[in-house]
């Protein structure tokens, strides 16, 4: 395999910034849990979680450096996960 580590270097400063963003989003998750959004409660929680996953995937897991195929795989898996959630909520929404 080709060694591409030299192109994957990001500074500590940037990584810490992303980490702080994640902490803020975690606090936001805790804060919004105090409000009752009715049917939207799960969607709000998942929306914040999705943004956090995106930040982790893109920056900490270096997806921004990867080729299209790998990005397509990750997007495909995300779509699968979403589809599973939609089918799951076909139970809870109509109950």
């Amino acid at each position: 395999m080709t060694d591409t580590h030299d192109t994957h270097i990001t500074g500590y400063r940037f990584s810490i910034l992303i980490w702080v963003d994640l902490l803020i989003l975690t606090l936001l998750t805790i804060e919004v849990a105090q409000f009752d959004f009715q049917a939207l409660t799960v969607i709000v929680a998942l929306l914040i979680a999705t943004i956090k996953s995106f930040l982790v995937g893109k920056h900490f897991m270096h997806l921004k450096f990867e080729n299209r195929f790998l990005k397509a795989v990750v997007i495909g898996v995300g779509a699968l996960f979403l589809a599973v959630l939609i089918v799951l909520f076909s139970d809870y929404l109509f109950y």
Binding site: L80, A83, V84, V87, S90, D91, Y92, L93, F94, Y95
Partner: peptide, 25 residues
């Protein structure tokens, strides 16, 4: 095969629409 798991739970108290969806899948 990912989307058929609910057929193990037809008698577990799932909603009607969910049961139909899982049966069709």
């Amino acid at each position: 095969g990912y989307f058929v798991w609910g057929h193990h739970m037809f008698t577990s108290g799932m909603s009607g629409p969910a049961r139909v969806i899982f049966s069709v899948l």
